[in-house]
Nucleic acid binder design. Structure first.
Lengths: 155, 155
DNA sequence: AAGTCCCTTCACAAATTTGTGAATGTCGTG
DNA sequence: CACGACATTCACAAATTTGTGAAGGGACTT
């Protein structure tokens, strides 16, 4: 079980997530209830409470997990914000694409479309703009597909 | 001009490319001829020849630039392997998606689809499998669009 | 063959990122 | 209010990544 968690953690950190956050997220993802306590995370991953705290903060900030606490209880729980968490990656990807397009637009403006370099950069800019338009449709078709195949269990 | 290079370099490193490789690639991308020498790169980016060498090696390995040398000349040139270099990112992205799907398949196998965690991971696996199928079509439609709009100048 | 230009290699320094110990803060219990 | 369980904060240690100096190698020139 811990092996599975570490492997998924490696995959997620390979996709750009900070290492500890990736491991913590993997532990939450793999948990039966989709929710764990800080102490459970520290024990499962063999890390310090401080590391749990920082990773959890990151994951909350990027909207991947949420913190719970039952009234009258001392322990915090951390749970998946969404079962379809992977769609989240497209939200952050979209922000990145916006940034890239902005950079390229500025670059083309500085160089001018008349030059070979400018044309090359302008083509790249158009590609990223195209991606931004297409990715939501990709998600949409995915959802339809899942619904059609009976896998969807809308929360 | 150097500002443009550094900005694009930052964007590319934000997308996962090693920092020096990103800067070197940005310098090549922005060059008028799409090709530069090692000395030009070292001067433009104010880095050591060793740094240029390592960055160039990385970029060759991932198939983004190629090395040229004119017969009778001592200086190497580094040029874009393709004007549509951004499509390359999907090749490497596809490899990553294959790896992710493999990890998830193993995880589901270990946990079992009967559990909530197993179902969650299986859904994620299906999503990445879907992405792998869709990304080539995305590229295809992009090419058609460019061709239709008269921007395409097939090399 | 020797010299020089250009490039690569790699041990190691420098820079950056990651993770912790211990102090501090919050909140529930008695 | 005091105490204890649980969590956070942050200075700093540890780990990792990045970039270089200098030695070495390849290829062109003389």
């Amino acid at each position: 079980m811990e092996q599975v968690i570490e492997r998924i953690g490696l995959t997620l950190s390979g996709m750009g997530m900070p290492r500890m956050a990736a491991r913590v997220f993997a532990a939450v993802l793999v948990s039966e209830q989709g929710r764990v306590t800080s102490a459970e995370l520290a024990a499962t991953l063999r890390i310090s409470p401080a590391a749990v705290s920082q990773a959890v903060q990151y994951l909350e900030n990027v909207g991947m997990i949420a913190r719970d606490r039952e009234p009258g209880r001392r322990r915090d729980h951390y749970r998946l914000l969404s079962e379809h968490w992977y769609e989240q990656m497209f939200t952050s990807r979209d922000r990145m694409l916006v940034a890239i397009e902005g950079d390229l637009t500025a670059a083309v403006g500085a160089i001018g479309v008349g030059s070979a370099a400018g044309q090359r950069l302008d083509e790249t800019r158009r590609f990223f703009a195209y991606l931004r338009g297409e990715l939501p449709k990709l998600i949409e078709r995915w959802r339809e597909r899942e619904a059609a195949s009976g896998h969807a269990e809308q929360a």
